[in-house]
Design a protein around this nucleic acid. Sequence first.
DNA 1: TATTTAATTACGCAATATTTTTATTAACTA
DNA 2: TAGTTAATAAAAATATTGCGTAATTAAATA
Lengths: 105, 105
Amino acid sequence: MKKKNTDIFGALADPNRRKILMLLSAGILSVSALAEQFEVSRPAISKHIKVLEENNLVTVTDQGRERLCELQQQGFLELYDWIKFYDAFWNEKFNNLENYLNKDL
Amino acid sequence: MKKKNTDIFGALADPNRRKILMLLSAGILSVSALAEQFEVSRPAISKHIKVLEENNLVTVTDQGRERLCELQQQGFLELYDWIKFYDAFWNEKFNNLENYLNKDL
DNA sequence: TATTTAATTACGCAATATTTTTATTAACTA
DNA sequence: TAGTTAATAAAAATATTGCGTAATTAAATA
């Protein structure tokens, strides 16, 4: 039983991890292909990918000795759900403001 | 010139800070009123609020010796902008899938 | 089979983050 | 004015994170 290190917000808190996601938005890439785009070492990138994987932002599939990384929607949906709550909050707030402003028209 | 500690993703990475936002979604609260809802000390909450303020998730207004905290939309919009990019990514992806599936109909 | 390549694991360390305790500032109130 | 309340600042302790090096595993290749 492996324990999860961080949640989705923690996963997104690191700039290198967000850069990985951005790179993967252009297409599937191996760990090495990703690592080439960074100053940091390959093990560092490996760990970042693991965090992204644990939080369902990325899926990794073994292909021979390579591991191919691809964006996964589920993690993004989780984040989306979170922000939707506040989106609703703001909509309601501005609706109420609008109602208030129109009260005497 | 004071330097900002973290960006919006870092600001949201802490569970206590997200709880502060949730509590503020119910209405304006003073620092003390917020602190009551946590196990951690008041200075800790103070610092969390500062981070939220620096990232435009919360505005604080002085009222006598109290400081009233309120949600601020700007920070949420920043996050929204980020996720919108990936939202578009997924929409495009599934559109393409749909196009592919319908190709021979 | 020996070597190379892709990647992870293990370990340790430096940098950051979070929290606490103590001290301080400023605004109310008796 | 003296005491209390709300909050932050400063300093220090603790916890977590990110990263590198070295070692290891597994697959491809000469």
